[in-house]
Amino acid sequence: MDFWSEALQQSNIAIFIIASEVGFWVMLAAGLAARYMLRWKRTSTVLLAAVPLLDVVLLVAVVVDLLHGAKAGHIHGLAAFYLGASLAFGPALVRWGDMRFAYRFAGGPPPRKLPKHGPEKLKAMWSEWLKVVLGAAISCAVLLFLILVIATPAQADELWKWMPRAGLITGIWLLAGPVYELFAGLGQRQDETADSRSA
């Protein structure tokens, strides 16, 4: 039995997480289509501004589920992590989509591709990692709210386990992202220096 099948049997929160993710992309596409294809700027603004409401609905669903005595499990911790990631990365994803719709339907400039290595790529990797830090902080804040305000002692014990996982993910992303890029960029510059000397 896979994770989602088991999660769906334990709690309806899995449905809300999936619906939030699908809803994000549907509302993003609808908002950008309204802006660039239909020229309905006001409608587009309303649709894009309403995207964070999906996160509010998910948070309310988690609160209601715990208040009704649901056994706190992986799906509740995952919901907190999803909320953190959604709020931290959501604005950047909206900008990503906006650039591509503008290029495709409104004659905007083509989206720039980052170089494989170099200072610009390293700066982008640090920026991405800071979003991870923000997402982890939001996730921990959500978990603390659930633990201190909503959860029973038994529920809180399970939710506490997710706090160090946020730090673990942040650390892994640091090593696999900007730290890796830093050393990869140094290696490339050393190779270029060696090639220039041998030329």
Rank of each mutant, 00 (worst) to 15 (best):
V142I: 15
V179R: 15
K41P: 00
M1G: 11
G177W: 09
A14F: 12
S196H: 13
E120T: 12
K131A: 12
G73K: 12
A50I: 08
A29V: 01
A137W: 05
W25K: 06
P164V: 05
I169R: 14
N12W: 06
A19D: 04
A85T: 07
E128T: 10
E158S: 11
H76T: 12
R104Q: 04
Q9H: 06
V149F: 05
W40H: 13
D98P: 01
L174P: 05
Q190W: 13
L53D: 04
L134S: 00
R100S: 00
K123L: 15
V57Y: 03
A14N: 03
K116D: 10
L28P: 03
E21D: 07
A141K: 07
K41H: 13
I138R: 10
F183G: 13
G135F: 01
A106Y: 01
H76D: 06
A72D: 11
F183W: 15
D55A: 06
G108K: 04
W96Y: 07
A151V: 12
A72R: 03
V63G: 13
K131P: 04
W162E: 05
P115S: 08
A79I: 13
P153W: 08
A156I: 13
L78K: 06
A34F: 02
I150M: 10
G108H: 08
L144H: 15
A106H: 09
L58M: 09
A184M: 05
L54Q: 03
L174Q: 02
H117G: 04
A30K: 09
L182E: 02
R104H: 07
L38Q: 13
I13G: 03
A30Y: 04
A154Q: 14
V62R: 05
L130V: 15
P164M: 10
P153C: 07
A199G: 14
K113T: 11
A176V: 15
C140S: 12
V149I: 14
E6K: 14
K116I: 08
G177L: 06
L114C: 01
Y180F: 14
L38N: 03
F24T: 01
G84C: 09
Y36Q: 00
L66P: 04
A49E: 08
P164N: 10
A7T: 02
G84M: 12
W4F: 14
P110C: 11
V26C: 09
